[in-house]
Simulated assay, not measured.
Amino acid sequence: MSVTAAKSQRVQSEENPAASSSGAQASISQKEERLVRMVVAIATIFIVSYIPTCIMLLFYGVFDEFNQFGVNKRLFIVSNYMVSLGQPVSGSVNIFIYYKMASKFRSVFRRLVRLDRQELEGNELE
């Protein structure tokens, strides 16, 4: 609804430039700026968490001994564990970023958590 209202305000301001309000335009730009920050944060975490995977694959391709049966098998196993930890971290950190940066997500999440608590408390009384 807010996007539709913002678009209709833009259309009205384009039709009648004297009626355009700078507050509505500033509000839209702030929302876009927050969205860009959130997307950049998620993309940065994704890229950083997958850098070890890329490095390991590079070593695996360049060095013949870097495999599970080669001379460096212990290093391969340890790096494989480290790589497998980075991927779940990337996926699980996103919910905290959404909670911190998206007000609608935060309000819906809080509402859902409160509903779950009330349902649990109601079941315990029975």
Rank of each mutant, 00 (worst) to 15 (best):
R74Q: 13
V113C: 03
A41P: 01
D64S: 15
Q30S: 15
S103N: 12
E126H: 05
A26H: 08
M101T: 03
V113M: 05
E121Y: 08
A26R: 12
F105I: 03
R114C: 06
E33Q: 11
I28K: 01
V3T: 14
V40R: 08
R111L: 05
V40F: 09
S107H: 10
R117A: 12
Q25Y: 07
V78K: 04
E14S: 05
P52A: 02
E124D: 10
A5T: 11
T53W: 14
V40C: 02
K104Y: 11
S107K: 12
Y98F: 15
L75G: 09
S103G: 10
S84A: 09
F96I: 03
S84W: 08
E124C: 02
I42Q: 02
E32A: 09
S107D: 14
A5V: 11
V113S: 06
A24H: 07
N123V: 07
Y99C: 02
V108N: 12
V78F: 09
S21K: 10
A26N: 12
I97C: 02
Q87W: 11
L125R: 11
Q25M: 07
F66N: 00
L75Q: 05
G70L: 02
N94I: 15
Y99L: 07
F76R: 01
C54K: 08
R34T: 04
V89K: 00
D64V: 09
A5L: 13
S92W: 15
S103H: 12
K104N: 14
L75N: 04
E124L: 11
F69N: 09
F63A: 01
F109N: 10
I45G: 03
R117T: 12
F69H: 08
N16T: 01
M82S: 09
R117V: 14
D64F: 08
S22D: 14
R111Q: 13
E14R: 05
G70F: 05
Y81T: 03
P88F: 09
M56Y: 07
S27Q: 14
A5Q: 15
A43T: 07
Q9I: 03
